[in-house]
Structures are given as C-alpha cells and as structure tokens.
Design a protein around this nucleic acid. Structure first.
Length: 193
DNA sequence: TATTTGATTCTT
DNA sequence: AGAATCAAATAT
C-alpha cells in the first residue's frame, strides 16, 4: 500500500515525526519520471528554544515558513552551494521541522542533505511547497514498519554553536545502514580522524 | 553598506 | 585541514 503522508502526520511532536520518518519514502517526479528514495537519516529541529533551530533567532523572512502549518517544505541554500530539504512539523506558531539527511535510491546511499537535494533536483523553488498533496514531491508510507531498535540516535551535525542543544540526540538513522556503509572505504577519507 | 557565519561537500 | 561560494542576519 502506498499512502501519501497527510498533514496530520506532520502535525505531531517533532521528535515523533522525525523518528517515524525513518523507513518512509521520499518521492519526486521529474518530467514524468519518478524517483523514490527510502529515508535513512533525519534530524529534528524543535522550537524557538532550540538554539540549533534557525527559528531560535526569531521569526524572519527566512524562518517564517517554520511558523506555519505542518507538511510544508522548508528549503534553503547552505554554504552558498547546497540545498537542504526540511518538512515543517507541529502546530502553527510552533517553529519546528525535520531535516532529511540521507536516503537510499535503488540501494544506493545518498548521504548528506546537499547530495540528497542534488540527486532529487530540489532547490529553493520548493520552499513553502505543500508536501501532502502528492504532486512532484511528497512523503510516502509503503507499509514497511521499522522497529524502534533499528533506529539509532545521534547528536546533530554541524551545530556546535548551539551549546547544550548540540548534545541532544535528535538525529535518527537506520542502524542497518550504519552497518553496511561504515567508514570501511578509505579511498577518499585519508584518515582525517 | 560591510562583515560574519553557516542544518555542507569535495579536495588536499 | 581548507576551499568553494552566497544568502541571511548582524553590526555600523
């Protein structure tokens, strides 16, 4: 069964939405071709008190979309080069969203929000797009349930400036993916650790 | 108007 | 460990 995730799905506590999005599918239609990606990693950004959340700086033109209804896309350009896809969660006036960090397309891991958006051809034109109407970009439940034990929790990435909030385990990732991808391939890594 | 910084990625 | 590269936010 394929089911487009409705607005009420996203209008719930952000951590609940984030964790349950792991194992769901992101569907993108480009010129009649359909691209389907299994979501394997997400991050939660929760409210104006969360210093890592863009909306913690207040309601600006950029963050305004996060104050709106759930199920709407928040897409922005980061580091001048890459786009990041988020979906707004919770009730209106409560600024929160879930960042989609990694997906799997045809068994291929697309790791990183910038790469994800490049693969799915998502840019700022999707900002404020409604992701619950099943048109060109949406989330789908394909009936495959993911057990709680299969979802690992980790600190969020690139938010060191957020103080105590940086330590929150608000990144969720499929453990099966962790096992299969690891850092075994050291071709390009060069042992930066 | 000028400066700083960042939900990143690729290269050295 | 650093470059690439730009929009939003902050300081002036």
């Amino acid at each position: 069964m394929r089911r487009v995730l409705p607005r009420i799905y996203f209008n719930r506590p952000t951590l609940t939405v984030a964790r349950s999005l792991v194992g769901k599918y992101l569907v993108r239609v480009i010129d009649g071709r359909t691209l389907v990606g299994k979501i394997v990693e997400v991050e939660a950004y929760v409210g104006s008190e969360d210093k890592a959340c863009h909306a913690s700086k207040g309601r600006t033109q950029r963050t305004d979309v996060m104050f709106g209804p759930a199920g709407i896309a928040y897409v922005y350009l980061i580091y001048g080069m890459y786009h990041c896809l988020n979906v707004v969660t919770e009730r209106e006036e409560f600024p929160s969203a879930v960042l989609i960090r990694a997906i799997e397309i045809d068994g291929k891991l697309i790791d990183g929000p910038g790469r994800l958006c490049r693969a799915m051809q998502i840019d700022r034109s999707f900002n404020r797009a409604d992701l619950t109407i099943g048109e060109s970009l949406w989330f789908e439940d394909r009936g495959v349930s993911v057990k709680k034990e299969e979802v690992g929790t980790h600190p969020r990435i690139g938010v060191d400036y957020a103080g105590e909030w940086a330590a929150k385990l608000w990144r969720f990732r499929l453990r099966t993916v962790t096992a299969s991808t690891g850092t075994c391939h050291t071709k390009k890594q060069g042992g930066a650790g």
